[in-house]
Structures are given as structure tokens and as C-alpha cells.
């Protein structure tokens, strides 16, 4: 167990130490104290280690994460786990805008609410939000799954490609080319798997609706111009 206190140790030293870890390292448990909203905490990790961050973080915490588990015991600023490749990032509090932006793999769990543009341009990541998500979430989402136990804000899934969106609560409005789709058995199975991975045991898949692309904007047509 290693502890780094960001009130004493510079951010550079924290990330440098974490980058020096490789597969098979014995230093698999890390505690980071006093993040005080600092940006770029525990970014660019690439080893199967667990980092507990005790307190609120700023922008891009766990950005481009690979393999590692990063658990934020507090709220997270914009762009949490942006472009994550693999591993697991958990935010115990709320996450600001752009959570999981362009993420390509791994699992991002937000136990509070996520703000606007959650999962923007997501490319394969799985995101689970226990609370609500803000406007323009899953904008241009390409691939992966977004699961929301609460409500979704305006323009959900605008210009969405092939990502799957599951929402248990209300959706304020759907964005251009995003439609509700049937929950077939394979979607129930997929969703059940995602809930289990995220440690959610108190919710049934029947409570969710599925949203995805109508694929009308996939090739330009002047009669769809209002939607572009």
C-alpha cells in the first residue's frame, strides 16, 4: 500500500510514480490524499493497479486509463476517464460534463449524477450512471453502452451512430436521429451483464428503455437538412 499526499507531493511525481508501474508490480494499491480539485490526477495509467483518490478531483481524472482501477471518493470535474481504453473508473460523487468522452473501452461508473455531454463521441466504453445525466449526452456516440438509472436531459443521443443507450427514468428529449428501440432478449442480457459488472443489484432490466440510431443521417439527404 503506497500513499501520496498531493498537499505535499507534486502532481508530476504522482503520475510519474504511477507510470513507472508495470504488469506484475507489487505496488497494486495506492491512496491519493488531498487532491483538492487538481486536474489530470492519475492520468495515462497502464498497469493492473487500484488507485483510491480521497476527495474531489478536477478535469480529466483517469484520462486515457488502461488496465487500472481508479476510484474517486468525491466528485470529479470535466472529462473524467476521457478516452479510457480499459480498466475501471468509479466516481463516488457527481461527475461534471464530458464524463467518459471518446472512451474506447473499460467501465466508468458514476454513483452520483453526470452532467452534460456524458459519453460524447464514445467509441466502445461502457458507462453506468446511478443518478441523472445532463443535456447532449451521447452526442455522436459511436459505439459502447450508456446505462442511466435516473433521468436523461435534453437532446439525448443526438447524431448517434451505433452506441446503445439504456435509460430507466425519463428522457427530456431525444436528439436528431435518436429513437427508442425495442428491448429484445439480447438487450436484457447485455444490460444485466453491465449492471452486474457495475455492482448494481437492486434494479431490474425490465425497468429500462433502449435508445439508438434511426440511421437516417448516415448518408446525406437534403430532405433531412433540418436535422443536421
Amino acid at each position: 500500500m503506497a500513499t501520496i499526499d498531493l498537499a505535499i507531493t507534486p502532481l508530476r511525481a504522482l503520475n510519474e510514480n504511477l507510470h513507472a508501474l508495470s504488469n506484475g508490480t507489487n505496488d497494486t494499491e495506492w491512496d491519493v490524499l488531498n487532491p483538492e480539485g487538481r486536474h489530470a490526477v492519475a492520468v495515462g495509467l497502464d498497469a493492473p493497479v487500484t488507485v483510491h483518490v480521497h476527495g474531489p478531483v478536477g478535469y480529466y481524472c483517469a484520462g486515457m486509463n488502461k488496465q487500472a482501477s481508479v476510484i474517486v471518493h468525491g466528485s470529479a470535474g470535466p472529462g473524467t476517464a476521457e478516452n479510457m481504453m480499459s480498466g475501471r473508473v468509479v466516481v463516488k460523487g457527481d461527475a461534471s460534463q464530458y464524463a467518459g468522452a471518446t472512451g474506447r473501452g473499460g467501465l466508468l461508473v458514476i454513483e452520483g449524477n453526470a452532467s452534460s455531454r456524458c459519453g460524447i463521441s464514445m467509441k466502445g466504453i461502457d458507462i453506468l450512471v446511478r443518478g441523472n445525466i445532463g443535456h447532449m449526452s451521447a452526442f455522436m456516440a459511436q459505439s459502447g453502452n450508456l446505462v442511466v438509472l435516473g433521468d436523461a436531459g435534453d437532446a439525448l443521443g443526438d447524431s448517434i451512430y451505433e452506441a446503445r443507450l439504456f435509460v430507466r427514468g425519463t428522457v427530456k428529449s431525444l436528439g436528431a436521429d435518436c429513437i427508442e428501440k425495442e428491448m429484445r432478449p439480447e438487450h436484457h442480457a447485455l444490460l444485466a451483464d453491465l449492471l452486474e459488472k457495475a455492482g448494481v443489484t437492486d434494479v431490474e432490466t425490465r425497468a429500462f428503455r433502449r435508445y439508438g440510431s434511426a440511421r437516417k443521417l448516415y448518408n446525406f439527404d437534403i430532405d433531412n437538412a433540418d436535422a443536421y
Binding site: 480539485g37 487538481r38 478536477g58 478535469y59
Partner: peptide, 10 residues
């Protein structure tokens, strides 16, 4: 309270 970032409120 208002902050551009949460850390302003922390």
C-alpha cells in the same frame, strides 16, 4: 456559491 470548477467551492 458559484465556481467555474468544483475546487473553488471545496
Amino acid at each position: 456559491a458559484f465556481g467555474s470548477e468544483y475546487r473553488a467551492l471545496a
